[in-house]
Design a protein around this nucleic acid. Structure first.
Length: 453
DNA sequence: TCTGGGGTCCTAGGACCC
DNA sequence: TCTGGGGTCCTAGGACCC
């Protein structure tokens, strides 16, 4: 644990609802509920005015309407939320390059990785927290944030919780245990209703009582990993670092239907459509996965998953759809299905579809592009340019369907682009994983090329 | 009118290999 | 002769978070 409160946690207050109130002045000071509006919808965010009526996140919208009929019910404008989030994260990155977003409205910042001349004593951090809050409000047109700072991620998050709404709280180093002790175990991130109930049954309600349990008691009650981590957290011990970039572990799409579906043909169609959505998102993220999972929720809310692991990773809608409809065929859907989901995990950042080359008819039936690279008019064909290894796959929004050649590293493919930057992975079938480099999109050394069919 | 959608991490059992 | 033991991969389910 650090000797100074150098980890900061920022959390925007009632974020989605606050953006709506900002953009529509008539909603200010009034209860606002953002969430699903259908008869199976649930509340995503309730403004503080709506919380006064007992409306909470994850509550059924129908129940929220009963509690607070005069609130404004909105389905959400995620583009606006993403835009506001970008502004806030941008402000945080001015403090330190080490920013770990947890969601659109939350992030950790490692102050120790920032400006070395900054004073990180209690007064310095407190002033910084207040400055950030003021800047966020100014730059976002009035959104309020709660900011916590402490010597670890865990305590910084607790601190921002204690600061809510619209405040800041710095846990002075040395006062961690005293701060934690009186709190309910439910305040600990990771302790949900089930764990809280298990602890309640042995008479544990507060962190102080939790701290009095020995490691063996905790691990036998909650399992090795969870018991050990709670044992540490109850003592304020948390050595996790702030991680700026996290690799995606899985990607999925799911839909709850307005009414249950029983017709297997309809379900197969839905699964196929959702496979396409998964594929599009995989390609947009330049990733692929080897395990395909089908999720089914029956009319009685009983939920099951079925998965299959392929020989190699895929981002191909047809491969995903074929796998998922195969899994679906094994499930009895006659009593009605309320939710269907399609997901991919076991991610790789390249596609090994050379193992299962689609035939020409399949390629022609695909979205119009083959997914494989095509030759750009007037550009040299690297397959004929000599003994250059063939990239596994070319994908790019920067140069659709084309590889990128860079003289120093040979052929590579674009796997990320945006904001005038292009990220290229120099990985080929014969050389295996190579370096990843980011270029300016205008960089003259980036030459659109092609691969053999 | 029962209970969203997108994730993460952990557990446990069986298969399989050495 | 009764029944190793560890490591890894895969599958299914569950708790939890925003």
């Amino acid at each position: 644990m650090r000797r100074q409160a150098t980890i900061l946690h920022l959390d925007l207050d009632a974020f989605f609802a606050a953006v709506e109130q900002r953009d529509k002045p008539s909603l200010r000071g009034k209860p606002v509920v953002v969430g699903g509006l259908g008869h199976r919808g649930v509340v995503s965010t309730a403004s503080y005015e709506a919380r006064l009526f007992g409306v909470r996140s994850a509550m059924r919208t129908a129940e929220a309407r009963a509690r607070c009929p005069h609130a404004a019910y909105l389905s959400g404008r995620f583009d606006a939320y993403r835009a506001a989030s970008r502004v806030v994260m941008g402000r945080l990155r001015e403090i330190s390059p080490l920013v770990e977003p947890l969601s659109l409205d939350e992030a950790f910042v490692d102050l120790a990785a920032g400006d070395e001349s900054r004073h990180l004593d209690l007064d310095g951090v407190t002033a910084l927290a207040e400055q950030v809050r003021a800047d966020v409000a100014e730059r976002t047109g009035g959104l309020t944030a709660s900011v916590g700072a402490a010597s670890s991620k865990f305590l910084a998050k607790i601190a921002s919780e204690l600061a809510k709404p619209d405040g800041s709280y710095v846990v002075a180093p040395g006062t961690e245990i005293a701060t934690l002790d009186p709190l309910s175990v439910r305040t600990i991130p990771g302790v949900g209703p089930v764990t809280a109930e298990r602890l309640r049954r042995i008479g544990v309600h507060t962190v102080e009582q939790l701290r009095r349990l020995d490691l063996l008691e905790l691990t036998s009650l909650l399992g090795t990993a969870y018991g050990t981590s709670l044992h540490s957290l109850a003592r304020g011990e948390d050595h996790r670092g702030v991680v700026a970039e996290r690799e995606t572990k899985s990607l999925s799409v799911e839909d709850t239907f307005e009414t249950d579906i029983t017709d297997p043909r309809v379900l197969a169609d839905v699964a196929t459509t959702m496979s396409r959505r998964v594929s599009e998102r995989l390609r947009a993220n330049a990733t692929s996965g080897r395990t395909v999972t089908l999720k089914i929720r029956h009319h009685d809310f009983e939920t099951h998953t079925r998965s299959a692991t392929l020989a190699g990773p895929t981002d191909d809608a047809r491969v995903i759809a074929r796998t998922v409809t195969g899994l679906l065929a094994e499930i009895d859907t006659s009593s009605g299905i309320r939710l269907l989901g399609v997901g991919v995990s076991g991610m790789a950042d390249w596609v090994q579809d050379d193992l299962f080359p689609p035939d020409d008819d399949e390629l022609a039936a695909a979205t119009g592009s083959t997914g494989a690279a095509t030759t750009l008019a007037g550009e040299p064909d690297i397959a004929t340019a000599g003994a250059v290894p063939r990239p596994l796959r070319a994908r790019s929004r920067w140069a659709p369907g084309a590889d990128v050649v860079h003289d120093e590293h040979g052929p590579g493919w674009v796997w990320g682009s945006g904001l005038g930057r292009v990220t290229v992975r120099f990985e080929t079938a014969t050389t295996g994983p190579g370096p990843v480099r980011t270029f300016d999109a205008e960089d003259p050394s980036l030459t659109p090329g092609t691969v053999e069919p």
